[in-house]
Design a protein around this nucleic acid. Structure first.
Length: 270
DNA sequence: ACTTTAGCCTGTCGGC
DNA sequence: TGCCGACAGGCTAAAG
């Protein structure tokens, strides 16, 4: 479910409920997520006060003086803030009880999400090799062009590589390539400097816009406030196989790249 | 050094 | 109605 805009929407939704609150207790019903919830977190987090909430790639970092909890939503995860007496459902894997009388609850049917611990002053291994944030100045067309030289991987696979740029998942990769007029299967190394520029700009514009629209609602994405995202209505190619291109009317095609479905317009993308 | 594949899980949907 | 395979928004680790 969640790509960068959904994670950012989640961050914005939970922050006012969490900031400055103390975590009184953890309730863990299912410790086996993408990785097991570390014992270090279980012993360190209770009693801590939440100092800040940051997003890095698709991770949410909840900072305390002892260290930071890293929360990842995986494919199907979501976070909500509820009253402390709210009954837990089948896929509600952990709760953080807060001193406000509310709780932060993680729900994730597929259990690809994670809850990890980063001790104060250290960087978790999973964050250590991440590429730049797509919305930062560190990520730009020149960098994309430079890193892609000599690379034979499809450009779509390339921009979904978290060491190149973070936060670009299947939906937004497809949309950005459409906006830049680039065929998803084109070798990354054969994309010109000018088109790398356009692609980087498209990634920024589309992600930024999706955040302002509250993320994309597909299947069951609901922001922490219960408001669905509205970006779905603005998709040009993702999930539109056989439907007419909004630009030229050609039928949108679907192909498989690296076991992920990819959508593109055969007329507008080369 | 890069690219590809397998795998972590469950739910849903379409076809028969 | 039920069974079965295909597929789903992420990402890492291992294999090639």
């Amino acid at each position: 479910m969640p790509e960068l805009p959904e994670v950012e929407t989640t961050r914005l939704g939970i922050t006012p409920h969490l900031l400055g609150r103390r975590i009184s207790r953890l309730v863990i019903r299912q410790p086996k997520l993408r990785w097991p919830i570390p014992q270090r977190l279980i012993s360190s987090l209770p009693g801590q006060r939440i100092e800040a909430i940051e997003r890095r790639a698709k991770y949410l970092l909840v900072h305390t003086v002892a260290g930071s909890a890293l929360l990842h939503l995986g494919m199907s995860g979501s976070l909500r803030v509820l009253d402390a007496d709210s009954a837990a459902d089948k896929h509600d894997h952990y709760d953080w009880l807060l001193d406000s009388g509310r709780l932060l609850r993680f729900t994730d049917p597929r259990r690809f999400g994670s809850l990890l611990w980063q001790a104060a002053g250290t960087t978790h291994e999973l964050l250590a090799r991440l590429g730049p944030e797509p919305l930062s100045a560190d990520f730009n067309g020149d960098r994309l062009w430079r890193l892609s030289r000599g690379r034979s991987a499809p450009i779509k696979t390339f921009i979904m590589d978290q060491s190149i740029v973070v936060g670009v998942g299947n939906i937004y990769a497809a949309e950005a390539l459409f906006a830049a007029g680039i065929h998803p299967r084109r070798k990354a190394g054969s994309v010109s400097r000018e088109r790398c520029q356009r692609l980087a700009e498209a990634i920024k514009r589309i992600l930024d816009h999706a955040i302002t629209r509250g993320g994309t609602t597909l299947r069951d994405f609901i922001s922490p406030d219960g408001v669905p995202g509205y970006f779905e209505q603005e998709l040009y190619v993702y999930g539109r196989a056989g439907e007419p291109c909004r630009n030229c009317g050609s039928a949108i095609r679907s192909i498989s790249l690296g076991q992920r479905s990819s959508f593109y317009c055969p007329q507008c993308q080369h």
